[in-house]
């Protein structure tokens, strides 16, 4: 595995994305931040604390699990269902989805389906730590920490201290253990 971002890089891009969110949405009054479990969740939490600092008030992230919305349920080993926790009514709000890696776009497609069942947001935006390319659906991220061109055989691993014990992004032929 080759490290492409360290903990400081991760902190920097999180702050930068937080600023971009504030700038683009003219504040946070009508914005709801939702992380997609598993690793979209710590990313959302970190964005929330960066946004709290910028705005000077508490920002809370929710989470949106897509395990019940995947379209590949028969072909992939099932991961455990993660929590769905929507902190406020979504109708008319701008939802910012946070995930670690943007790849085929199928996770985001499932997340959009899930959102449609939970309310009617005015707009949905997407923030990711890494965009590695190879989209299979017409989906793009609004906020990208780092674009990393990859081959299909490669694995991108974004690690968060809360879950993995350390921070950073690695790339390699095999999954990090």
């Amino acid at each position: 595995m080759r490290q492409v971002m360290d903990g400081d890089d991760l902190t920097r891009v999180t702050r930068r994305i937080a600023h971009e969110i504030v700038e683009r949405n003219h504040g946070l009054d009508a914005t709801v931040l939702l992380g997609i479990p598993t690793r979209g969740r710590p990313f959302a939490d970190r964005l929330a604390s960066a946004l709290s600092e910028i705005e000077g008030k508490a920002v809370i992230a929710g989470s949106l699990d897509i395990g019940m919305y995947r379209d590949d349920i028969d072909t992939r080993p099932r991961t455990r269902i993660g929590p769905t926790d929507i902190p406020e009514d979504l109708d008319g709000k701008t939802v910012v989805l946070a995930d670690d890696v943007l790849f085929t776009g199928r996770t985001i497609r499932a997340a959009l389906d899930a959102l449609a069942d939970l309310g009617r947001p005015a707009a949905v935006q997407l923030a990711v730590v890494v965009d590695r390319g190879h989209r299979e659906l017409p989906i793009r991220a609004d906020y990208v920490g780092k674009n990393i061109p990859t081959s299909l055989e490669e694995h991108v691993s974004v690690r968060f201290r809360e879950i993995d014990g350390d921070d950073g992004v690695w790339i390699g032929k095999e999954a990090a253990s």
Partner: peptide, 15 residues
């Protein structure tokens, strides 16, 4: 988690 689904406005998922 499924109990939460059942409290949603649309208490149904495509799983």
């Amino acid at each position: 988690e499924f109990a939460e689904v059942l409290t949603r406005p649309i208490p149904k998922v495509p799983a």
